[in-house]
């Protein structure tokens, strides 16, 4: 099995050859072995969105129960781990809030274990934690989840491979073309330089955008620690002819 130092050397070589400012991960990123057979080899074709591509799906209060935003109260008891609040805003590329839109998250428990059949990590399952959450953004694009800080976990990309702690986020914009699935990380994680998924984003400033900030103003005394993470979706509203936006 490949050693970490070989993976790390591959990552460094790719970064050294990369131009500054690539905004998105490379799809072809060999240090992430699972990408080898799953990346397109041709460049995507530019096209102007039309029809259904101009309109994101709509979600509302019939879709999401407000209690789904608190991952610490879902399973009949207190989950184990460090209680945290993750709060932020979903914005489009023009800085406009994405209102009343669906946010879905999933994550490992404090021990680094998912509630998932395929997770074979010999760490304890927490009977009081599923790691699943949903919410709708508010009129300011704001979202908030109360949860448990996830643990790092091992995987089989190479020998002694560990993922930095992260929360998976699924997001919708106002246009279908703004659809995003990504991962939020925690500041100062020592596993960052070793992780080929995080490092598939070759530009350091772009990688930083996936790291939440610790925000003491969000922490609640004798209760939880607060993290802030804003999400910016690609582009503005493509065919937004001048806004009839009277409400801001």
């Amino acid at each position: 099995m490949t050693e970490q130092r070989e993976i790390s050397a591959e990552i460094v070589a790719i970064h050294d050859a990369a131009q500054v400012g690539e905004p998105q991960p490379r799809l072809d990123f060999p240090p992430y072995r699972s990408s080898l057979l799953r990346h397109p080899t041709k460049r995507p074709r530019p096209v102007d969105p039309e029809g259904a591509e101009l309109v994101a799906p709509v979600f509302g209060h019939s879709d999401v129960d407000p209690l789904e935003a608190d991952l610490t109260i879902q399973s009949g008891g207190e989950p184990i781990g460090e209680r945290i609040l993750v709060r932020g805003r979903v914005l489009d590329g023009d800085g406009r809030p994405v209102r009343r839109q669906l946010v879905e998250i999933w994550q490992a428990n404090a021990a680094g274990r998912y509630v998932h059949q395929r997770d074979r990590h010999p760490a304890p399952v927490d009977p009081h934690f599923t790691g699943l959450g949903r919410c709708l953004t508010d009129d300011d694009g704001g979202y908030a989840f109360t949860t448990i800080k996830p643990g790092a976990y091992p995987w089989r990309n190479h020998r002694n491979a560990w993922r930095p702690a992260h929360i998976h986020f699924s997001l919708f914009g106002t246009d279908f073309t703004q659809r995003l699935i990504t991962q939020m990380y925690f500041p100062g994680d020592p596993l960052f330089p070793l992780d080929p998924i995080y490092q598939s984003i070759t530009d350091p400033a772009a990688r930083e955008r996936l790291v939440a900030g610790y925000d003491h103003d969000l922490s609640e005394p004798e209760w939880l620690l607060g993290y802030r993470w804003d999400i910016v979706l690609t582009g503005g509203h493509a065919t937004y002819l001048e806004p009839e936006d009277h409400d801001d």
């Binding site: 998105q24 023009d94 879905e104 991962q183």
Partner: peptide
Amino acid sequence: MTEPATPGQTIGPFFHEAL
């Protein structure tokens, strides 16, 4: 004033309970 976009990441193997 275009804000830089948040990069994507893989959906990973463990989305089946969530999505």
